[in-house]
Nucleic acid binder design. Structure first.
Lengths: 335, 335
DNA sequence: TTGTAGGCGTTATCAT
DNA sequence: ATGATAACGCCTACAA
């Protein structure tokens, strides 16, 4: 009655099945039956139990339950940064695929983690399988037997993974650009000074095979700003440029912005292509021509692998632990 | 040791601490000590245990562990759809805040759920607190004592929540528009035929207070396409329009697209304002003037509330279970 | 219809 | 340094 001493209703710790049983004057088993809607219980008893449960704010412990019904249920998804539009599209697809099978998804972002190995082992302890852009170097081996699926997996990987096959689509894009009269394309690549990214190298190789040697401008950061800055550099260093192939859609949006600022017509004067197929590419003007990854396909394959591994139906590694997905050329307005 | 009987090493079920103990010829307790790096164990023994554990691919059960060390650890975040750029920004902030406190986040999307009540109770069973855009109607009451924090909470809500205070910023925006000479603004609102959204109503009220009666165009879907279509309608229905206030940034991007297609100069001919402050608004041209929510602040407040509730330091509801965060006007290029 | 007994995998406490 | 015992919260099998 006094507002002061209401704390008596707040026990130090959560109510357990025993508390409810005691409160309702029945056995734990009867509580179980009531809570889980099982048959063979007197409606009056059931009602009494449920009332007691509600009054005590009883909520079954997922640990106690998980111990007895050890069905795997939780997937870990590790991404760089949800703020980069690529990852939410992937995450959404993964969550959707997982939901179909009744699995939950814990999403972890590397960007918020001090130590990546620590992040990995932390979420590893909470899940039944792990998905993500997981560098081999980041403690993948310390995960014991945990099923692991790597996006963007290289052929020699130690865990399962998805191989992203963009070569044919890239060839389509190169042909498309040449068809439209491009003769002086530039590659805007993301890579430390040194070797090109795989996709960048592919573009260069395909152009070379057609008798064109595209200059390359490299940026380090994966962001629209980096794309904008890189394009600025291209305008200065390569005046005759008639196409810019950006390392991804986000960077391509930066490119569009730079070109607009410079009063350059896209696609009239310079054509622009991106990579990933984000819906972001439809938000901008002109809409982005891009190499679109089948994100749904990636998610379906990855979740399928992970769940198969967790169920013991698919080995943790080796050829059976791999899938391929492909890109396709999507021509929109920027080329 | 014989490679022959390898399959014997693959028990039907996961290795437990007992298996490791037996294999290493020690007690379970010693296994625990070895696995958790606890003191008081002979290095040689420890080594033997760890070797056995690795060989058996032993991974401690989170259920067994959670039963003994019942520290809350997992947060549930319910959003509509990560494909809508608003939610990933929020999710990223929430995950970051949670990570600071050592919590994991299960992300669930309503869009992937058949039944929303089912979704809610499903993730509720896996977490220690729940965050999200949770309509009161969707079974919030069936969650027992689970700590719940509602984004976009109305004053009378039954659970804890964040109140988003945009009135002052909206007033700033209205004044800003009028300063720039706007006389015929139109509201592009998201709402079923009938009452306006809260933010829409606020815009109208503020304009009215300044002697202007803005027409309203309503759309139902929360998407760029809806924003584009709604703006198309505005162009037809209200020829003299000199400003469009969109219900959010995504819709405002649709508006920009429509206006560009129509050859209308922004902001010269029509000014455009959005709502949310997404980074998306900096991807487009012209960059979007918007009312920016302090997403970090929202996330920090929401996670703080949820963890406080889970720890029993904050009541599940009432004034102490509420926080306010505010918007601010960000003037960019579109106005 | 209801209750009793046992065990799931882990860690803490207290011996030895 | 190591082991025995008990306990965590829940569910299943069986008994009453």
């Amino acid at each position: 009655m006094t507002a002061r001493s209401k704390s008596a209703a707040t026990p130090a710790h959560r109510a357990t099945i025993n508390d409810v049983a005691a409160a309702a004057g029945v056995s734990r088993q009867t509580v179980t039956r009531a809570m889980n809607g099982m048959p063979g219980i007197n409606p009056a008893t059931k009602d009494r139990v449920l009332t007691a449960a509600k009054r005590l704010r009883y909520r079954p412990s997922r640990f106690g339950r998980g111990l007895v019904k050890p069905e795997p249920h939780t997937l870990g998804l590790v991404v760089d940064d949800l703020t980069n539009p690529y990852y939410p599209e992937l995450a959404s697809a993964v969550i959707g695929e997982a939901a179909k099978q009744g699995w939950n998804v814990i999403v972890a972002e590397k960007i918020h983690a001090g130590d990546r190995e620590e992040l990995l082992s932390e979420v590893a302890g909470q899940v039944d399988a792990l998905l993500g852009y997981l560098n081999d170097s980041e403690g993948l081996d310390q995960l014991g037997d945990l099923p692991c699926v790597q996006f963007d997996s290289e052929p020699g990987a130690t865990v399962g993974g998805i191989e992203q096959d963009f070569e044919p689509a890239m060839a389509d894009l190169v042909d498309h650009l040449l068809d439209r009269g491009v003769r002086h394309p530039v590659l805007l690549d993301i890579s430390p000074p040194g070797p090109l990214s795989r996709r960048g190298q592919c573009f260069v190789d395909l152009m070379r095979a057609r008798g064109i040697e595209p200059p390359v401008t490299q940026v380090i950061e994966n962001s629209m700003a980096a794309g904008a800055a890189g394009s600025q550099a291209i305008l200065q260093d390569h005046p005759g440029t008639d196409a810019i192939m950006a390392f991804n859609d986000v960077a391509a949006c930066g490119t569009l912005k730079t070109l607009r600022r410079a009063g350059i017509d896209v696609p009239g004067q310079i054509k622009v292509a991106g990579f990933d197929g984000l819906s972001l590419g439809t938000y901008v003007s002109p809409q982005l021509t891009t190499l679109a990854l089948d994100v749904q396909g990636v998610a379906a394959a990855a979740v399928g692998l992970a769940l198969g591994m967790a169920a013991g139906e698919i080995p943790r590694s080796g050829p059976r632990a791999r899938r391929r997905v492909s890109y396709r050329l999507v021509v929109r307005e920027s080329s």
